Amino acid sequence: MSASTSRRPLPAIAFLLVLSILTVIVWWRVLHRPDAAPQTAGPTPSHSASCAPAAKALTLPSPGAVTVNVRNGADRYQLATKVTGELKSRGFKVGQPGDAPPLTGTAEIRSGIAGRPGATLLSYYVPGAKLVTIKRSDTNVDLILGSGYSVLAPQTTVTKAVAKSRKPC
């Protein structure tokens, strides 16, 4: 038989103890870090990118300069027709309402690059809508209403939010 060697378990135990403590500290920090503000369906989308020094300021058009095509992706009877009427009463040019494939979430506002200012303006009216850039050469904007859509933002709220977005940083 071979000669017995004496092992020292203390360094290994100390190493495992230190490693365990570090693991607990890392997980504690991960689980208790301050999270970003939750996304709510507030009337003002985040436009902080316009405050960056290299970013171009986006000039919002008047509602009368924006043509909106409303589509019902919520499968609710006459929803697109109702919202089309509401947008028209708020000064937007509107196309014929229609249907769209089912959409979860509040809404999507789809536009090409040329229609981005109009889409941004419309995003103030539809809290929680997602802006989507598509290949399109005109300035028309498509509003696809999803199952989470409820109402347009009140005009006073929209007016305040638009005025706030025009203030310099």
Rank of each mutant, 00 (worst) to 15 (best):
P38F: 06
P38H: 10
Q39C: 05
A41E: 11
P43E: 13
T44E: 15
P45M: 02
S46W: 12
S48V: 13
S48Q: 15
S48C: 07
S48M: 14
A49M: 07
S50N: 12
C51W: 11
A55C: 04
A55K: 05
A55R: 06
K56E: 15
A57W: 09
L58C: 08
T59S: 14
S62C: 00
T67A: 08
V68C: 01
V68E: 01
N69K: 13
V70G: 06
N72K: 06
A74V: 07
A74H: 09
A74W: 10
A74I: 06
R76A: 11
Q78V: 08
Q78K: 13
T81V: 13
T81R: 14
K82D: 08
V83L: 12
T84V: 04
G85Y: 03
G85P: 03
G85A: 10
E86H: 09
K88E: 11
K88D: 11
S89G: 14
Q96L: 15
Q96P: 09
Q96E: 15
P97Q: 08
D99Y: 06
A100V: 01
A100S: 10
P101L: 10
L103Q: 08
T106W: 07
E108V: 06
I109S: 02
R110M: 06
G118D: 02
A119R: 00
A119D: 01
L121Q: 05
L122H: 02
S123A: 14
S123W: 08
Y124C: 03
Y125V: 00
P127A: 10
G128E: 04
A129V: 00
V132T: 11
V132A: 04
T133C: 02
I134V: 15
R136F: 02
R136V: 00
D138H: 07
N140A: 14
N140S: 14
D142Y: 09
D142H: 07
I144H: 06
I144F: 03
G146V: 00
S147M: 10
Y149D: 01
S150V: 11
V151G: 12
L152K: 13
L152A: 00
L152Q: 13
